[in-house]
Design a protein around this nucleic acid. Structure first.
Ligand SMILES: [Mn+2]
Ligand SMILES: [Mn+2]
Ligand SMILES: [Mn+2]
Ligand SMILES: [Mn+2]
Lengths: 220, 220
DNA sequence: ATATTTTTTTAGACCAGTCTAAACTTTTAT
DNA sequence: ATAAAAGTTTAGACTGGTCTAAAAAAATAT
Protein backbone atom coordinates (compact mmCIF):
# COMPACT_ATOMS: atom_id res chain seq x y z
CA UNK A 1 0.00 0.00 0.00
CA UNK A 2 1.22 3.44 -0.95
CA UNK A 3 1.58 6.30 1.49
CA UNK A 4 -0.20 9.62 1.09
CA UNK A 5 3.06 11.18 -0.09
CA UNK A 6 3.94 8.40 -2.53
CA UNK A 7 0.51 8.77 -4.10
CA UNK A 8 0.97 12.49 -4.59
CA UNK A 9 4.36 12.00 -6.24
CA UNK A 10 3.02 9.31 -8.54
CA UNK A 11 0.13 11.47 -9.67
CA UNK A 12 2.39 14.48 -10.24
CA UNK A 13 4.80 12.40 -12.33
CA UNK A 14 1.94 10.96 -14.34
CA UNK A 15 0.61 14.41 -15.19
CA UNK A 16 4.04 15.79 -16.02
CA UNK A 17 4.65 12.80 -18.29
CA UNK A 18 1.42 13.64 -20.14
CA UNK A 19 -0.25 10.33 -19.58
CA UNK A 20 2.86 8.50 -18.51
CA UNK A 21 4.70 8.52 -21.83
CA UNK A 22 7.33 11.30 -21.63
CA UNK A 23 10.37 11.23 -19.34
CA UNK A 24 10.10 13.60 -16.37
CA UNK A 25 12.91 15.61 -14.79
CA UNK A 26 13.68 15.95 -11.10
CA UNK A 27 13.21 19.71 -11.02
CA UNK A 28 9.84 19.56 -12.75
CA UNK A 29 8.55 17.27 -10.02
CA UNK A 30 10.06 19.47 -7.32
CA UNK A 31 8.33 22.53 -8.73
CA UNK A 32 4.94 20.84 -9.10
CA UNK A 33 4.98 19.53 -5.54
CA UNK A 34 6.54 22.63 -3.95
CA UNK A 35 9.45 20.66 -2.64
CA UNK A 36 13.20 20.51 -3.23
CA UNK A 37 15.13 18.50 -5.82
CA UNK A 38 16.96 16.58 -3.09
CA UNK A 39 13.68 15.34 -1.64
CA UNK A 40 12.49 14.32 -5.08
CA UNK A 41 15.62 12.25 -5.69
CA UNK A 42 14.97 10.36 -2.47
CA UNK A 43 11.37 9.62 -3.39
CA UNK A 44 12.32 8.66 -6.95
CA UNK A 45 14.58 5.98 -5.53
CA UNK A 46 11.80 4.64 -3.36
CA UNK A 47 9.20 4.58 -6.14
CA UNK A 48 11.56 2.97 -8.62
CA UNK A 49 12.49 0.41 -5.96
CA UNK A 50 8.79 -0.49 -5.89
CA UNK A 51 8.65 -0.58 -9.70
CA UNK A 52 6.22 2.26 -10.19
CA UNK A 53 8.77 4.22 -12.24
CA UNK A 54 12.02 3.43 -14.01
CA UNK A 55 14.89 5.72 -13.21
CA UNK A 56 18.07 6.62 -15.05
CA UNK A 57 20.31 8.80 -12.95
CA UNK A 58 20.56 12.38 -14.21
CA UNK A 59 18.08 11.67 -17.04
CA UNK A 60 14.77 11.60 -15.19
CA UNK A 61 12.08 8.98 -14.72
CA UNK A 62 9.49 7.15 -16.81
CA UNK A 63 6.34 5.51 -15.50
CA UNK A 64 5.97 1.72 -15.62
CA UNK A 65 2.71 0.00 -16.52
CA UNK A 66 2.18 -0.55 -12.81
CA UNK A 67 2.87 3.12 -12.06
CA UNK A 68 0.42 4.35 -14.67
CA UNK A 69 -2.28 2.06 -13.37
CA UNK A 70 -1.76 3.28 -9.82
CA UNK A 71 -1.77 6.93 -10.92
CA UNK A 72 -4.96 6.44 -12.92
CA UNK A 73 -6.70 4.95 -9.91
CA UNK A 74 -5.82 8.05 -7.86
CA UNK A 75 -6.97 10.35 -10.67
CA UNK A 76 -10.23 8.39 -10.90
CA UNK A 77 -10.87 8.95 -7.21
CA UNK A 78 -9.98 12.65 -7.45
CA UNK A 79 -12.37 13.27 -10.33
CA UNK A 80 -15.22 11.23 -8.88
CA UNK A 81 -14.98 13.17 -5.62
CA UNK A 82 -14.93 16.50 -7.51
CA UNK A 83 -18.06 15.42 -9.34
CA UNK A 84 -19.72 14.46 -6.06
CA UNK A 85 -18.84 17.79 -4.46
CA UNK A 86 -20.30 19.81 -7.32
CA UNK A 87 -23.30 17.67 -8.23
CA UNK A 88 -24.46 16.54 -4.80
CA UNK A 89 -23.08 19.04 -2.30
CA UNK A 90 -23.58 22.14 -4.49
CA UNK A 91 -19.99 23.31 -4.40
CA UNK A 92 -18.80 25.74 -7.07
CA UNK A 93 -16.37 24.25 -9.57
CA UNK A 94 -13.57 26.44 -8.28
CA UNK A 95 -13.86 25.16 -4.69
CA UNK A 96 -13.46 21.42 -5.15
CA UNK A 97 -9.89 20.73 -6.25
CA UNK A 98 -8.19 21.15 -2.87
CA UNK A 99 -10.76 19.02 -1.06
CA UNK A 100 -10.49 16.30 -3.72
CA UNK A 101 -6.73 16.47 -3.23
CA UNK A 102 -7.39 15.06 0.24
CA UNK A 103 -10.30 12.74 -0.56
CA UNK A 104 -8.39 10.98 -3.35
CA UNK A 105 -6.27 9.27 -0.67
CA UNK A 106 -9.11 7.51 1.15
CA UNK A 107 -8.49 3.77 0.89
CA UNK A 108 -11.56 1.70 0.06
CA UNK A 109 -12.22 0.20 -3.37
CA UNK A 110 -15.83 -0.46 -2.41
CA UNK A 111 -16.33 3.19 -1.52
CA UNK A 112 -15.24 4.29 -4.98
CA UNK A 113 -17.46 1.75 -6.70
CA UNK A 114 -20.44 2.91 -4.69
CA UNK A 115 -19.65 6.56 -5.25
CA UNK A 116 -19.39 5.93 -8.99
CA UNK A 117 -22.81 4.25 -8.98
CA UNK A 118 -24.32 7.03 -6.84
CA UNK A 119 -23.15 9.59 -9.38
CA UNK A 120 -24.46 7.45 -12.23
CA UNK A 121 -21.10 6.58 -13.74
CA UNK A 122 -20.07 10.06 -14.90
CA UNK A 123 -17.70 10.30 -17.87
CA UNK A 124 -16.12 13.64 -16.97
CA UNK A 125 -15.47 15.75 -13.88
CA UNK A 126 -16.84 19.29 -13.43
CA UNK A 127 -13.87 20.75 -15.32
CA UNK A 128 -14.41 18.47 -18.30
CA UNK A 129 -11.53 16.11 -17.51
CA UNK A 130 -12.34 12.47 -18.30
CA UNK A 131 -12.82 10.03 -15.41
CA UNK A 132 -10.87 6.77 -15.87
CA UNK A 133 -12.99 3.64 -15.41
CA UNK A 134 -12.23 1.02 -12.75
CA UNK A 135 -9.71 -0.63 -15.10
CA UNK A 136 -7.86 2.60 -15.79
CA UNK A 137 -9.31 3.09 -19.27
CA UNK A 138 -9.71 6.77 -20.15
CA UNK A 139 -12.31 7.89 -22.65
CA UNK A 140 -10.19 10.44 -24.53
CA UNK A 141 -12.01 13.02 -26.56
CA UNK A 142 -9.44 14.30 -29.10
CA UNK A 143 -8.33 17.70 -27.84
CA UNK A 144 -5.65 20.35 -28.04
CA UNK A 145 -4.65 23.53 -26.30
CA UNK A 146 -6.73 26.52 -27.40
CA UNK A 147 -3.60 28.66 -27.56
CA UNK A 148 -2.13 26.39 -30.25
CA UNK A 149 -5.10 26.34 -32.63
CA UNK A 150 -4.93 28.10 -36.00
CA UNK A 151 -7.01 31.10 -37.03
CA UNK A 152 -10.56 30.18 -37.91
CA UNK A 153 -10.62 27.16 -35.62
CA UNK A 154 -14.13 26.03 -34.66
CA UNK A 155 -14.99 23.48 -31.97
CA UNK A 156 -15.97 23.39 -28.36
CA UNK A 157 -14.36 23.68 -24.97
CA UNK A 158 -13.53 20.21 -23.67
CA UNK A 159 -11.87 20.92 -20.37
CA UNK A 160 -10.07 23.42 -18.21
CA UNK A 161 -7.08 22.99 -15.91
CA UNK A 162 -8.55 22.98 -12.42
CA UNK A 163 -5.82 23.72 -9.94
CA UNK A 164 -6.21 27.52 -9.89
CA UNK A 165 -9.46 28.72 -8.35
CA UNK A 166 -9.15 32.29 -9.61
CA UNK A 167 -8.93 31.08 -13.22
CA UNK A 168 -12.04 28.95 -12.73
CA UNK A 169 -13.96 31.82 -11.18
CA UNK A 170 -12.98 34.03 -14.11
CA UNK A 171 -13.93 31.47 -16.77
CA UNK A 172 -17.24 30.92 -15.09
CA UNK A 173 -17.91 34.67 -15.07
CA UNK A 174 -17.22 35.13 -18.78
CA UNK A 175 -19.05 31.94 -19.67
CA UNK A 176 -16.12 29.94 -21.04
CA UNK A 177 -16.96 26.53 -19.56
CA UNK A 178 -16.69 22.96 -20.85
CA UNK A 179 -19.25 22.08 -23.53
CA UNK A 180 -19.51 25.63 -24.92
CA UNK A 181 -18.92 26.28 -28.65
CA UNK A 182 -15.82 28.31 -29.38
CA UNK A 183 -14.35 29.94 -32.50
CA UNK A 184 -10.93 31.53 -32.93
CA UNK A 185 -11.28 34.90 -34.66
CA UNK A 186 -7.92 36.56 -34.20
CA UNK A 187 -4.48 36.36 -32.59
CA UNK A 188 -2.82 39.51 -31.35
CA UNK A 189 0.87 39.39 -32.33
CA UNK A 190 2.10 41.61 -29.49
CA UNK A 191 0.89 39.67 -26.39
CA UNK A 192 -0.42 36.48 -28.03
CA UNK A 193 -3.89 37.19 -26.71
CA UNK A 194 -6.84 35.70 -28.60
CA UNK A 195 -10.11 37.08 -29.83
CA UNK A 196 -12.72 34.31 -29.64
CA UNK A 197 -16.41 33.74 -30.06
CA UNK A 198 -17.93 31.71 -27.22
CA UNK A 199 -21.54 30.77 -27.97
CA UNK A 200 -21.76 33.87 -30.22
CA UNK A 201 -20.32 36.24 -27.63
CA UNK A 202 -17.05 37.94 -28.52
CA UNK A 203 -14.34 37.63 -25.85
CA UNK A 204 -10.66 38.44 -25.51
CA UNK A 205 -8.48 35.85 -23.78
CA UNK A 206 -4.90 36.47 -22.66
CA UNK A 207 -2.17 33.94 -23.42
CA UNK A 208 -2.02 32.37 -19.91
CA UNK A 209 -5.77 31.87 -19.99
CA UNK A 210 -5.79 30.33 -23.48
CA UNK A 211 -3.04 27.93 -22.45
CA UNK A 212 -5.28 26.43 -19.77
CA UNK A 213 -8.24 25.75 -22.03
CA UNK A 214 -8.53 22.47 -23.93
CA UNK A 215 -10.69 22.39 -27.07
CA UNK A 216 -12.04 19.57 -29.22
CA UNK A 217 -10.22 18.36 -32.33
CA UNK A 218 -12.07 16.54 -35.07
CA UNK A 219 -9.89 13.60 -36.01
CA UNK A 220 -10.12 13.09 -39.71
CA UNK B 1 -3.85 22.53 12.74
CA UNK B 2 -3.72 19.04 14.19
CA UNK B 3 -2.07 16.10 12.47
CA UNK B 4 -3.90 12.91 11.57
CA UNK B 5 -2.26 11.17 14.54
CA UNK B 6 -2.98 13.95 17.02
CA UNK B 7 -6.64 13.84 16.01
CA UNK B 8 -6.84 10.10 16.61
CA UNK B 9 -5.27 10.43 20.05
CA UNK B 10 -7.60 13.26 21.01
CA UNK B 11 -10.68 11.31 19.97
CA UNK B 12 -9.50 8.19 21.81
CA UNK B 13 -8.87 10.16 24.99
CA UNK B 14 -12.27 11.82 24.72
CA UNK B 15 -14.03 8.48 24.46
CA UNK B 16 -12.04 6.91 27.27
CA UNK B 17 -12.84 9.91 29.45
CA UNK B 18 -16.55 9.32 28.77
CA UNK B 19 -17.25 12.71 27.35
CA UNK B 20 -14.06 14.31 28.56
CA UNK B 21 -14.79 14.28 32.28
CA UNK B 22 -12.84 11.33 33.77
CA UNK B 23 -9.05 11.16 33.96
CA UNK B 24 -7.49 8.74 31.47
CA UNK B 25 -4.45 6.54 32.05
CA UNK B 26 -1.52 6.06 29.70
CA UNK B 27 -2.04 2.33 29.27
CA UNK B 28 -5.72 2.73 28.43
CA UNK B 29 -4.83 5.00 25.55
CA UNK B 30 -2.09 2.67 24.41
CA UNK B 31 -4.49 -0.24 24.31
CA UNK B 32 -7.20 1.63 22.45
CA UNK B 33 -4.81 2.85 19.78
CA UNK B 34 -2.80 -0.36 19.51
CA UNK B 35 0.40 1.41 20.41
CA UNK B 36 2.91 1.34 23.28
CA UNK B 37 2.85 3.30 26.54
CA UNK B 38 6.10 5.04 25.64
CA UNK B 39 4.59 6.45 22.45
CA UNK B 40 1.54 7.61 24.36
CA UNK B 41 3.66 9.49 26.89
CA UNK B 42 5.36 11.35 24.03
CA UNK B 43 2.06 12.31 22.44
CA UNK B 44 0.57 13.31 25.78
CA UNK B 45 3.38 15.81 26.19
CA UNK B 46 2.74 17.26 22.80
CA UNK B 47 -1.03 17.55 23.24
CA UNK B 48 -0.72 19.07 26.68
CA UNK B 49 1.85 21.52 25.29
CA UNK B 50 -0.88 22.61 22.88
CA UNK B 51 -3.42 22.81 25.72
CA UNK B 52 -5.77 20.13 24.48
CA UNK B 53 -5.26 18.09 27.63
CA UNK B 54 -3.88 18.73 31.09
CA UNK B 55 -1.32 16.27 32.28
CA UNK B 56 -0.17 15.23 35.72
CA UNK B 57 2.77 12.88 35.54
CA UNK B 58 1.92 9.31 36.59
CA UNK B 59 -1.74 10.24 37.15
CA UNK B 60 -3.05 10.43 33.60
CA UNK B 61 -4.64 13.20 31.57
CA UNK B 62 -7.85 15.25 31.54
CA UNK B 63 -9.29 17.03 28.54
CA UNK B 64 -9.41 20.83 28.49
CA UNK B 65 -12.37 22.77 27.13
CA UNK B 66 -10.36 23.27 23.94
CA UNK B 67 -9.59 19.55 23.72
CA UNK B 68 -13.22 18.53 24.15
CA UNK B 69 -14.31 20.96 21.47
CA UNK B 70 -11.71 19.60 19.05
CA UNK B 71 -12.64 15.98 19.81
CA UNK B 72 -16.33 16.71 19.31
CA UNK B 73 -15.63 18.23 15.93
CA UNK B 74 -13.85 15.04 14.85
CA UNK B 75 -16.66 12.88 16.21
CA UNK B 76 -19.18 15.05 14.36
CA UNK B 77 -17.34 14.43 11.09
CA UNK B 78 -17.04 10.71 11.77
CA UNK B 79 -20.75 10.29 12.42
CA UNK B 80 -21.87 12.47 9.53
CA UNK B 81 -19.73 10.44 7.14
CA UNK B 82 -21.11 7.17 8.53
CA UNK B 83 -24.60 8.48 7.96
CA UNK B 84 -23.71 9.46 4.40
CA UNK B 85 -22.22 6.05 3.65
CA UNK B 86 -25.29 4.19 4.87
CA UNK B 87 -28.03 6.54 3.68
CA UNK B 88 -26.65 7.66 0.34
CA UNK B 89 -24.15 5.01 -0.74
CA UNK B 90 -26.13 2.01 0.54
CA UNK B 91 -23.41 0.61 2.76
CA UNK B 92 -24.36 -1.82 5.51
CA UNK B 93 -24.03 -0.43 9.03
CA UNK B 94 -21.19 -2.81 9.79
CA UNK B 95 -19.03 -1.59 6.88
CA UNK B 96 -18.78 2.11 7.57
CA UNK B 97 -16.73 2.60 10.71
CA UNK B 98 -13.28 2.00 9.20
CA UNK B 99 -13.93 4.24 6.22
CA UNK B 100 -15.26 7.00 8.49
CA UNK B 101 -12.09 6.59 10.52
CA UNK B 102 -10.27 7.96 7.47
CA UNK B 103 -12.87 10.46 6.27
CA UNK B 104 -13.08 12.17 9.67
CA UNK B 105 -9.65 13.69 9.02
CA UNK B 106 -10.54 15.58 5.85
CA UNK B 107 -9.99 19.27 6.52
CA UNK B 108 -12.75 21.54 5.25
CA UNK B 109 -15.35 23.16 7.47
CA UNK B 110 -17.46 24.03 4.44
CA UNK B 111 -17.50 20.39 3.35
CA UNK B 112 -18.96 19.30 6.68
CA UNK B 113 -21.59 22.02 6.63
CA UNK B 114 -22.67 21.01 3.14
CA UNK B 115 -22.63 17.32 4.01
CA UNK B 116 -24.80 18.02 7.06
CA UNK B 117 -27.30 19.90 4.89
CA UNK B 118 -27.26 17.19 2.21
CA UNK B 119 -28.16 14.60 4.86
CA UNK B 120 -30.85 16.88 6.24
CA UNK B 121 -29.18 17.60 9.58
CA UNK B 122 -29.37 14.08 11.05
CA UNK B 123 -29.47 13.78 14.85
CA UNK B 124 -27.89 10.31 15.11
CA UNK B 125 -25.56 8.09 13.08
CA UNK B 126 -26.54 4.63 11.80
CA UNK B 127 -25.57 3.04 15.13
CA UNK B 128 -27.74 5.42 17.13
CA UNK B 129 -24.90 7.58 18.41
CA UNK B 130 -25.80 11.28 18.57
CA UNK B 131 -24.17 13.67 16.09
CA UNK B 132 -22.77 16.81 17.77
CA UNK B 133 -23.88 20.05 16.13
CA UNK B 134 -21.43 22.57 14.66
CA UNK B 135 -20.92 24.10 18.11
CA UNK B 136 -20.15 20.78 19.74
CA UNK B 137 -23.52 20.47 21.46
CA UNK B 138 -24.61 16.85 21.80
CA UNK B 139 -28.29 15.95 22.04
CA UNK B 140 -28.03 13.35 24.80
CA UNK B 141 -30.86 10.91 25.15
CA UNK B 142 -30.57 9.52 28.71
CA UNK B 143 -29.15 6.04 28.40
CA UNK B 144 -27.41 3.22 30.18
CA UNK B 145 -25.73 -0.05 29.43
CA UNK B 146 -28.21 -2.91 28.86
CA UNK B 147 -26.05 -5.24 30.94
CA UNK B 148 -26.50 -3.01 34.00
CA UNK B 149 -30.30 -2.72 33.92
CA UNK B 150 -32.45 -4.41 36.55
CA UNK B 151 -34.89 -7.24 35.95
CA UNK B 152 -38.13 -6.05 34.39
CA UNK B 153 -36.50 -3.09 32.66
CA UNK B 154 -38.50 -1.75 29.69
CA UNK B 155 -37.28 0.78 27.14
CA UNK B 156 -35.69 0.87 23.74
CA UNK B 157 -32.30 0.39 22.17
CA UNK B 158 -30.64 3.77 21.79
CA UNK B 159 -27.30 2.88 20.27
CA UNK B 160 -24.69 0.23 19.73
CA UNK B 161 -20.90 0.41 19.90
CA UNK B 162 -19.81 0.42 16.28
CA UNK B 163 -16.16 -0.55 16.10
CA UNK B 164 -16.69 -4.31 15.74
CA UNK B 165 -18.25 -5.34 12.45
CA UNK B 166 -19.05 -8.88 13.54
CA UNK B 167 -21.12 -7.60 16.47
CA UNK B 168 -23.04 -5.30 14.13
CA UNK B 169 -23.71 -8.09 11.65
CA UNK B 170 -24.98 -10.26 14.49
CA UNK B 171 -27.24 -7.61 15.98
CA UNK B 172 -28.66 -6.88 12.58
CA UNK B 173 -29.42 -10.57 12.03
CA UNK B 174 -31.27 -10.98 15.33
CA UNK B 175 -33.05 -7.65 14.89
CA UNK B 176 -31.54 -5.82 17.87
CA UNK B 177 -31.03 -2.41 16.27
CA UNK B 178 -31.43 1.18 17.53
CA UNK B 179 -35.03 2.26 17.96
CA UNK B 180 -36.35 -1.21 18.78
CA UNK B 181 -38.35 -1.82 22.01
CA UNK B 182 -36.57 -4.04 24.50
CA UNK B 183 -37.54 -5.69 27.79
CA UNK B 184 -35.30 -7.48 30.26
CA UNK B 185 -36.89 -10.81 31.29
CA UNK B 186 -34.15 -12.68 33.05
CA UNK B 187 -30.48 -12.76 34.05
CA UNK B 188 -28.59 -16.03 34.08
CA UNK B 189 -26.41 -16.15 37.20
CA UNK B 190 -23.79 -18.49 35.75
CA UNK B 191 -22.62 -16.56 32.65
CA UNK B 192 -24.45 -13.24 33.14
CA UNK B 193 -26.31 -13.74 29.87
CA UNK B 194 -29.68 -12.01 29.48
CA UNK B 195 -33.04 -13.15 28.28
CA UNK B 196 -34.75 -10.22 26.56
CA UNK B 197 -37.80 -9.41 24.51
CA UNK B 198 -37.01 -7.33 21.41
CA UNK B 199 -40.19 -6.16 19.68
CA UNK B 200 -42.01 -9.17 21.22
CA UNK B 201 -39.39 -11.68 20.08
CA UNK B 202 -37.56 -13.60 22.80
CA UNK B 203 -33.77 -13.51 22.51
CA UNK B 204 -30.79 -14.57 24.58
CA UNK B 205 -27.84 -12.15 24.72
CA UNK B 206 -24.43 -13.03 26.14
CA UNK B 207 -22.66 -10.68 28.53
CA UNK B 208 -20.20 -9.19 26.00
CA UNK B 209 -23.09 -8.43 23.65
CA UNK B 210 -25.24 -6.83 26.36
CA UNK B 211 -22.31 -4.65 27.39
CA UNK B 212 -22.22 -3.05 23.94
CA UNK B 213 -25.88 -2.13 23.78
CA UNK B 214 -27.12 1.21 25.13
CA UNK B 215 -30.75 1.49 26.17
CA UNK B 216 -32.99 4.44 27.01
CA UNK B 217 -33.51 5.59 30.59
CA UNK B 218 -36.57 7.57 31.58
CA UNK B 219 -35.28 10.41 33.75
CA UNK B 220 -37.79 10.99 36.50
C1' DA C 1 7.10 -0.89 57.16
C1' DT C 2 9.24 -3.22 53.60
C1' DA C 3 9.36 -5.86 49.52
C1' DT C 4 7.22 -7.01 45.28
C1' DT C 5 4.48 -6.04 41.33
C1' DT C 6 2.48 -2.87 38.14
C1' DT C 7 2.45 1.33 35.71
C1' DT C 8 4.69 5.18 33.74
C1' DT C 9 8.50 7.76 32.12
C1' DT C 10 13.08 8.34 30.08
C1' DA C 11 16.88 7.21 27.03
C1' DG C 12 18.26 5.97 22.79
C1' DA C 13 17.31 4.08 18.32
C1' DC C 14 14.77 3.80 13.87
C1' DC C 15 11.82 5.07 9.67
C1' DA C 16 9.47 8.37 6.46
C1' DG C 17 9.87 12.60 4.64
C1' DT C 18 11.96 16.98 4.44
C1' DC C 19 15.81 20.47 4.15
C1' DT C 20 20.64 22.87 3.19
C1' DA C 21 25.14 22.66 1.55
C1' DA C 22 28.51 20.40 -1.01
C1' DA C 23 29.88 17.29 -4.76
C1' DC C 24 29.15 15.60 -9.11
C1' DT C 25 27.17 15.34 -14.20
C1' DT C 26 25.43 17.29 -18.10
C1' DT C 27 24.53 21.16 -20.95
C1' DT C 28 25.61 25.56 -22.87
C1' DA C 29 28.63 29.30 -24.09
C1' DT C 30 32.83 31.00 -25.72
C1' DA D 1 38.29 22.41 -26.30
C1' DT D 2 37.64 24.52 -22.17
C1' DA D 3 35.14 27.18 -18.88
C1' DA D 4 30.89 28.52 -16.87
C1' DA D 5 26.20 27.53 -15.80
C1' DA D 6 22.44 24.60 -14.83
C1' DG D 7 20.61 20.46 -13.09
C1' DT D 8 21.06 16.36 -10.11
C1' DT D 9 22.68 13.57 -6.48
C1' DT D 10 24.88 12.77 -1.99
C1' DA D 11 25.90 13.75 2.82
C1' DG D 12 24.28 14.99 6.93
C1' DA D 13 20.82 17.05 9.86
C1' DC D 14 16.02 17.68 11.53
C1' DT D 15 10.88 16.59 12.75
C1' DG D 16 6.99 13.52 13.82
C1' DG D 17 5.87 9.26 15.15
C1' DT D 18 7.13 4.81 16.58
C1' DC D 19 9.67 1.14 19.27
C1' DT D 20 12.62 -1.56 23.05
C1' DA D 21 15.01 -1.61 27.24
C1' DA D 22 16.09 0.48 31.45
C1' DA D 23 14.96 3.60 35.27
C1' DA D 24 11.63 5.62 38.32
C1' DA D 25 7.30 6.07 40.73
C1' DA D 26 2.95 4.26 42.56
C1' DA D 27 0.10 0.57 44.06
C1' DT D 28 -0.25 -3.77 46.36
C1' DA D 29 1.01 -7.62 49.32
C1' DT D 30 3.10 -9.41 53.25
MN1 LIG E 1 -8.81 18.54 -9.51
MN1 LIG F 1 -3.48 14.59 -3.01
MN1 LIG G 1 -17.85 4.77 13.95
MN1 LIG H 1 -9.37 8.25 12.47
Amino acid sequence: MLSYTEENYLKAIYHLAQGGTKAVLTNEIAEMLNTKAASVTDMIKKLSGKNFISYEKYYGVKMTRQGKSEALSIIRKHRLWETFLVQKLQFNWDEVHDIAEQLEHIQSPLLIEKLDAFLNYPKADPHGEPIPDRNGKVQVQAHGCLHEQTLGYKGCIVAVKDSDATLLKYLNKIGATPGKKIELLNKEAYDESLEVLVENKKLSLSKPVAQNILVSLTTR
